[in-house]
């Protein structure tokens, strides 16, 4: 692998939350690499640490949370411990983020166009307001907002969920960010709108060559969008692989279980057999099981799984698995 191709490299990131009930290792020794122009998926269930990973990249972890270790190299620069000022010039400029609920990240009392223009002006000191407005309207048109001139001066609550998410994407892309982090960007949207937004993101990505980190719980979205995938469980990466490799040949019992347990809209499944399901539930992060974090739910668990924490093992072809089966 050529190093210059890498836009983001997270090494052994640890983001811990020091609550009065104990330490929560929300992100525990996670390493992620994003190449230029790549769409990387981080998939997992609620509380697996996928959102905390993205907030760590943005340096938006609030107390009692803290980055307890590791480094986040963006464009060769370590973001961990960087000054607030420096981070502010990166955030929204070189790295942007879009969230599940666009309403919470838009200010309800300002017109949406003005908000996007502000982002642009903030990072481009010598741009005039008229120029910014023109650029915003251009961007609105690019992300498929109908009647962009009219929408420029509209307030967030006057837009539908889909249009709001388009505004957020416009805001994220207007500074030509090198990296876009999308945290469940379509979860709050209806399916037909979700399809529109996913298509838009894919087209824009191809057009302006941004790298995207796609954080989602939806394996369908992963299959449709991502090039490379990390599967997280209870703060750890359990498996990582090229998307085709992962779906064709899942190696970790958790990945395998997830893939088997989701119903599909494109295939008829015989109901008499029941759906495959992973039993039990996600462990409490304050009292993680010993050994492999997945062992209480794993149907292949052996005694050693209760004792030894398995390491990520390279299976070749950039496919890594954290399971004792492959540890010898």
């Amino acid at each position: 692998m050529r190093e210059d191709n890498t836009i983001l490299e997270i090494n052994n990131l640890k983001t811990y939350f020091y609550t009065d009930k104990g330490v929560v290792p929300a992100v525990d020794d996670v390493s992620i690499k994003v190449k230029k122009g790549q769409i990387v998926g981080i998939v997992g269930e609620s509380g697996c640490g996928k959102s905390m990973t993205s907030l760590s990249i943005m340096q938006l972890i609030a107390p009692p949370g803290k980055i307890a270790g590791g480094e986040i190299r963006f464009d060769q620069k370590n973001l961990v411990g960087i000054s607030k000022q420096e981070m502010r010039s990166i955030r929204g400029n070189e790295i942007s983020m879009i969230f599940q609920e666009p309403m919470t990240s838009l200010n309800p009392v300002y017109p949406v166009g003005k908000q996007v223009a502000e982002t642009l002006l903030l990072h481009n000191a010598n741009m005039t307001k008229a120029e910014a407005k023109r650029k915003v309207i251009e961007m609105f048109a690019m992300v498929g907002i109908p009647e962009p001139e009219k929408r420029y001066s509209v307030y967030p609550h006057q837009l539908s969920g889909g249009l709001r998410q388009r505004v957020m994407i416009a805001m994220a892309l207007i500074c030509r960010s090198k990296l876009l982090i999308a945290d469940e960007p379509t979860t709050a949207l209806d399916v037909t709108i979700e399809a529109q937004i996913l298509k838009l993101m894919k087209n824009l990505q191809a057009e302006i060559d941004t790298s995207i980190i796609m954080i989602t719980h939806n394996l369908g979205i992963v299959a449709e969008m991502c090039d490379y995938v990390y599967v997280m469980y209870a703060g750890k990466i359990m498996e990582q692989a090229d998307v085709f490799d992962l779906f064709d040949n899942p190696k970790h019992p958790y990945t395998e279980g997830l893939l088997k347990s989701i119903p599909r809209r494109d295939v008829h499944q015989n109901k008499s057999k029941g759906l495959y399901s992973i039993e039990g539930m996600v462990p409490n992060m304050l009292q993680l099981p010993r050994g492999c974090r997945f062992h209480p739910r794993c149907e292949y668990a052996v005694d050693a799984c209760r004792e030894v924490e398995p390491q990520l093992v390279d299976m070749g072809n950039d496919h890594l698995v954290r399971c004792i089966k492959y540890n010898q």
Binding site: V191, A195, I221, V222, A223, E224, L259, I262, R265
Partner: peptide
Amino acid sequence: AAAPVPDP
């Protein structure tokens, strides 16, 4: 057709 399919 809009729902994503878990098959790359």
